[in-house]
Design a protein around this nucleic acid. Structure first.
Lengths: 288, 288
DNA sequence: GCTATTTTGAAATTTCTGATACAGCTTTTC
DNA sequence: GAAAAGCTGTATCAGAAATTTCAAAATAGC
């Protein structure tokens, strides 16, 4: 575990923080429950057990075990805590530094930007540092092969990731989503491989199929998705959810890009001794 | 079709207001319920019927009658409304505007995110609304052909743009940066064409060459670049600069993505009458 | 590759909650 | 001051929700 930071603000450590810190000690279904709760904190937890469980993609009993593990005597006790925390938070004088430009005259660009910024904050706050670090460690392992893939829109983000990682380290490639293009490549996927998949709602079946096939062959799956979790979460070792809703007819991938860039940055630092010469070599090739 | 998420703006009068307004017409026990609810709004209402009733000093049935009178079909319905109202209020952009967590123990992800958010704000503030609108108008002209292109990293953002615009309107394509791949296509480029180029520092000569060739043949160039301006700016009609510095060995493209998504959003709205059927058609093809 | 351990969900069980019927009480009206 | 109308609470019930049990499935350990 890394930082032992106490409450960043004045209030007592919220349940959300505790969950983030304990994230890596959770079982897979507990992690799912935790992700759901954190991504819609704390409202997801105010649902019924059955509702919460089904939204998290787990069974009722697993949801119960999750709250028991957090130290509550039962689901009602858990909900009571959430309500009280929420009330305390809402009644506290929230320091609200204003957004860029409020008011009806705000330009379309400015209000769109505000929404995106809100997404980025929510995304960061809902990701456990331990989970992020675990992914950094995984992607920094030079003995692993890293494969990036994504859906029709997220594919571009996957490419963006690949174009950076390709320079930082070796054994990096991009896999097109369409099954016809990866079927034959899968024979080489095994325990040494890591598949980093980008998949947000209107989840794509072909990407899911790719990950399921990979997982079956022993590959480690890292998933960057939305708070509702792509079905790939079922087979993923690590899940990093990003908020994507925007005042638009389209979802925003800015959160995914943020995570991607943060991962690139962290892995580059971690592998600096080997990454630096590689980056210099690339520069030399470009400048000739 | 995806659901049309509207901006979370001017919400209807909250339940609290309605209760205050109708207070006079309540029976004595209804007034007790109302007072409790208003004095601990809305948390008191999230309790069980029995809990709410006993705190209000009334019986269960009276509490039920109270919520029925407010127009809800039952207690669960009433609670659902309260939760939704609360969530909408808490998640409104205002609540998310301070910096994330600036302490020394802040995670790497959080401080990276703060830098990116700073970039987004700076980007928005340095772009003239008129310039942005002009680009929207240009990209909304159905008689124009739109070509997207970009460098080794920004190319992914250009692809992202293309994959959205391709659905919203026709005559959209992506041009690979390498001259060998576009030389022959340039013969078709002329006055009716728009080239949208993404280019940030370590400016790529091949992208510059593409734009210069296009400009010479009468195409309109739109450039998304960094504040130091790619050389393409000399031939560009419109320039949208984005801040890109981050606490990393790499630049951040988040500002470019923000501009891209804002453009997609604005053009989609502008062309809604024709974009909607196109989007529906794409959905239908995907779902077969 | 097999066993021991952990994790998980379907089904059964228990608890509790929201809803209702009805009788007593209070207030209003003539 | 009596009857009618309205309001309220007790007792009860039906249904839903939380919880427990237990066997299957997955995982880890050797």
């Amino acid at each position: 575990m890394r930082d032992e930071t106490l409450a960043p603000v004045a209030d007592q450590p919220s349940l959300a923080e505790r969950i983030r810190h304990e994230m890596d000690s959770f079982t897979p279904s507990e992690k799912r429950a935790a992700h759901l709760l954190l991504s819609h904190y704390p409202f997801a937890g105010l649902d019924t057990v059955a509702g919460f469980a089904s939204r998290a993609g787990i069974s009722g009993p697993s949801a119960l075990r999750f709250v028991t593990r957090l130290g509550f005597s039962g689901f009602p006790d858990f909900q009571k805590h959430l309500r009280e925390e929420l009330e305390a938070q809402l009644l506290s004088p929230l320091a609200k530094s204003g957004p860029i430009d409020t008011g009806p005259g705000a330009s379309a660009l400015a209000s769109f930007a505000n929404a995106v910024i809100g997404n980025l904050k929510a995304t960061v706050e809902n990701i456990a540092p331990a989970e992020f670090d675990a992914v950094v460690t995984l992607l920094s392992d030079p003995r692993r092969n890293i494969h990036f893939t994504g859906g029709r829109f997220t594919g571009a983000v996957a490419r963006y990731a690949e174009s950076h990682f390709r320079i930082v380290r070796s054994h990096v490639d991009f896999i097109e989503g369409q099954p016809a293009l990866w079927r034959d490549r899968m024979i080489e996927i095994g325990r040494k491989d890591v598949i980093v998949a980008f998949d947000i709602r209107r989840y794509q079946e072909d990407v899911t199929a790719l990950c399921e096939t990979g997982a079956k062959q022993g590959a480690t799956i890292v998933l960057l998705t939305d708070p509702w979790l792509s079905p790939i979460a079922r087979v993923a070792r690590h899940v990093l959810p990003a908020h994507i809703t925007a005042p638009s007819n389209w979802d925003s991938s800015a959160g995914l890009l943020l995570l991607t860039e943060a991962l690139v940055s962290a892995v580059t630092k971690r592998l600096w001794d080997t990454a630096k010469p590689r980056m210099e070599a690339v520069e030399r090739l470009r400048n000739r």
